[in-house]
């Protein structure tokens, strides 16, 4: 196996164990790993966005091959010169200038543009897919007679009634302009019960998701502990445990209260 692969695995194991060391208590290894993450991810994102968007789609349209600005640079992505793309360039540069306090306000133009586009996109998208389609799907089959009365899986009259009643009662709970008392209050209480079941299911799924991510990390640590990687996980664990033990001894934990 190449040296860069083994070296990379040792670094990965060190950083993973450094983050996990936070479970013991906040410590220098965790802080180092955290700050490396902060630094590397900022540059990683900047590089990715530049080379996948700004370079081909902005500069590719402002400095195309044989374009009027080809004397400055030639970036050939088969685009034609489009002077309108000066607009996002200007807004983008204004955004960068806003890092200086006196030019703080300059970012507002770029933010305003993104807010406007996002608002226009989302208003229609959510109306069509999340409201109208969902209301249409709530018009369930109850009276046609083609469905069984009850089924644990699949459509049934009972299940469809539960879905209809549950959706309406839960939606009515979110209507706070009317006081939720009397029969109306009882109906919205039913809506709360459906919402609680939904939140409980979300909690169960959230736990499931987190455990899955932990399984992924442990799988990598187990892989890096193999002879192919020169037992990287074990060496890094030993290193961290010894240093951390010594550090804990020098910096005892402050008892609360």
């Amino acid at each position: 196996m190449a040296f860069s692969t083994i070296f990379g695995a040792w670094i990965a194991a060190f950083l993973t164990l450094g983050i996990l060391s936070y479970l013991y208590r906040d410590n220098p290894f965790y802080k180092i790993a955290e700050h490396v993450f902060v630094g590397v991810s900022a540059a990683y994102w900047a590089a990715t966005f530049y080379w996948t968007q700004i370079y081909p789609n902005l500069f590719g349209r402002l400095f195309p091959k044989d374009g009027p600005l080809a004397f400055i640079a030639e970036i050939d992505f088969n685009h034609d010169f489009n002077i309108l793309y000066l607009f996002p360039l200007i807004l983008g540069v204004m955004m960068l200038l806003s890092i200086f306090k006196q030019f703080n306000w300059m970012a507002r133009w770029g933010i305003a543009y993104t807010v406007g586009i996002a608002a226009g996109l989302k208003a229609y998208g959510y109306l069509s897919s999340n409201v109208l389609s969902q209301i249409s799907a709530s018009a369930v089959d109850i009276f046609s007679g083609s469905l069984p009365l009850f089924s644990m899986s699949g459509d049934s009259v009972f299940n469809n009634i539960i879905i209809l009643v549950g959706t309406i009662s839960a939606l009515m709970y979110f209507y706070f302009s009317r006081e939720q008392t009397g029969s109306y209050g009882k109906f919205t209480r039913l809506g709360i019960y459906f919402l609680m079941i939904s939140f409980g299911a979300s909690f169960g799924f959230a736990v499931m998701g987190r455990i899955s991510l932990l399984i992924g990390r442990f799988n990598d640590l187990i892989l890096f502990s193999s002879p192919d990687y020169n037992y990287g996980t074990y060496w890094m664990m030993l290193f961290i445990v010894v240093i951390l033990g010594f550090w804990s001894f020098q910096n005892p934990e402050k008892k609360e209260g």
Binding site: S129, S133, Q134, S136, A137, I163, S198, A201, S202, F205, A206, M208, G209, S212, I215
Partner: peptide, 26 residues
Amino acid sequence: TTSIQVNEVMPYVQSGQIKGVLAGMP
């Protein structure tokens, strides 16, 4: 989808807007 997101996506499955969903690692 991830397990965390699957509950939000479930209404799309029932309405037929997506053809089934793979829910997390299970």
